[in-house]
């Protein structure tokens, strides 16, 4: 057992965990943050994506102890003040989700994609960047649309600031 401490969605958390505990289990089982999902066992599907210190990471392939001392953001911590994050809003407005299971990971990955590419995103880049996230429901058509829409919203709002 090891004691791990980190910041999750702005709150400091600390718990004793088995060394082999994955970050995703720590989030889902220890902290009860079940918005982060597990869709595979080979680090392929991206249902588990969270941000560690602002970068998208697959929490199924990260040990909880590796995240000690970092700031983790999960889907539950993405919006603030009761307002949806622009990527969340774009997924809803463009029907970028059906069953919703891949959605938290898709949204967390998309935020990271937009952060890295800003306004320069095009369809081909979005499709390429989504390579590590699998969706079985949407055929990606509306996910791609959502990401491009969100990129537009985020860069416009950044320009306005």
């Amino acid at each position: 057992m090891t004691t791990v401490s980190m910041t999750v969605n702005g709150k400091t958390v600390s718990a004793d965990v088995e060394d082999r505990t994955l970050l995703v289990s720590f989030l889902r089982e220890t902290l009860g943050l079940t918005g982060t999902h597990v869709g595979c066992d080979t680090s392929q599907c991206g249902a588990c994506v969270v941000h560690i210190d602002g970068r998208a990471v697959k929490s199924c392939t990260t040990l909880a102890v590796q995240a000690a001392g970092t700031a983790v953001t999960t889907i539950e911590g993405l919006s603030s003040g009761g307002e949806l994050h622009p990527v969340q809003a774009a997924f809803r407005d463009n029907h970028g989700l059906q069953c919703g299971f891949c959605t938290p990971g898709m949204i967390m990955t998309s935020v990271d994609i937009i952060n890295r590419h800003g306004a320069h995103l095009d369809e081909a880049t979005v499709r390429h960047e989504l390579e590590g996230n699998i969706c079985r429901c949407t055929g990606y058509h509306n996910i791609v649309k959502s990401v491009l829409d969100a990129a537009g919203r985020m860069t416009t709002s950044a320009a306005a600031e």
């Binding site: 943050l33 079940t34 918005g35 982060t36 999902h37 999960t74 889907i75 539950e76 993405l78 919006s79 949806l84 969340q88 997924f91 809803r92 407005d93 029907h95 989700l97 919703g100 299971f101 959605t103 938290p104 949204i107």
Partner: peptide, 15 residues
């Protein structure tokens, strides 16, 4: 636009 989306995009779905 779908009513159910709010819970899925905020991580509040109950699977």
């Amino acid at each position: 636009v779908r009513k159910e989306d709010k819970r899925f995009i905020t991580g509040k779905g109950k699977y």
